[in-house]
């Protein structure tokens, strides 16, 4: 086996998980901010949370859950030799990312149209608790949105690797790691959705 490239697949995957842990702690900090201010301003959080559109949040939940399913299946497809199905599913995931961002664009546009955005004069006139809610909302969903865009770029990049044959049924750790990143994006939204869009009482 001289000249054969040695690859540590377990190490590569473990490294990805370690990176994901730092991401969890990053978003964990934002959830701490949320819980501290929820405890301080429970009424304002409810009145501000009711102004978010459950349809946008719920729709994007379905989009992300489905995109996660696509990524999960794509790995099995690649390993079973169905490269075209794998690429189709990854393309579908990137399409889901685009749908998510378009939804986000309309959602944020509507909010900004009502004068609700960080630093706006309208926001400063709101009760302090509502101002805090919207600021953390923009910070958290904005950071999450950046992750959606990065995840989509990573998946497109992985699709190129699959097309060029660098990632295949015998060497798929890049797809595995790209998939892990995408699932993390879904995981964080699983918490954002109920905490921001569904605090009705």
């Amino acid at each position: 086996m001289s000249g054969h490239e040695h690859k540590d697949y377990t190490g590569a995957k473990f490294g990805m998980w370690l990176f994901l842990f730092t991401e969890v702690l990053l978003f964990g900090g934002l959830f701490i901010l949320y819980s501290v201010y929820l405890a301080r301003y429970p009424k304002e959080f409810i009145s501000a949370g009711k102004q978010l559109n459950v349809w946008f949040g719920g729709g994007n939940t379905l989009v992300l859950l489905t995109s996660s399913l696509f990524v999960a299946i794509s790995i099995t497809a690649l390993r079973r030799g169905s490269t075209r199905l794998c690429l189709g599913l990854l393309g579908g995931t990137v399409a889901c990312a685009a749908i998510f961002m378009v939804n986000k664009y309309f959602e944020w546009s509507a909010k900004i149209g009502h004068g609700i955005y960080p630093g706006s004069t309208h926001l400063k006139e709101l009760p302090p608790g509502e101002m805090v809610f919207f600021n953390i909302y923009y910070l958290t969903t904005g950071l999450h949105g950046i992750h959606v865009v990065i995840g989509a770029i990573v998946l497109v990049w992985t699709m190129v690797f699959i097309k060029t044959g660098r990632v295949h049924a015998g060497d798929w750790v890049i797809l595995e790691n790209a998939g892990l990143y995408w699932h993390l994006v879904d995981l964080i939204w699983i918490f954002i959705f109920p905490l921001y869009y569904l605090i009705l009482h």
Binding site: L38, L69, G179, D186, L187, F191, P194, L195, L198, I199
Partner: peptide
């Protein structure tokens, strides 16, 4: 106040499924 805990409980269950099977 229980609403938040119910929401968090379900979210934890959902993330458990994603981590265990999808990941």
């Amino acid at each position: 106040a229980l609403n938040v805990w119910v929401a968090l409980g379900i979210a934890t269950l959902k993330s458990g499924l994603v981590v265990a099977i999808f990941m």
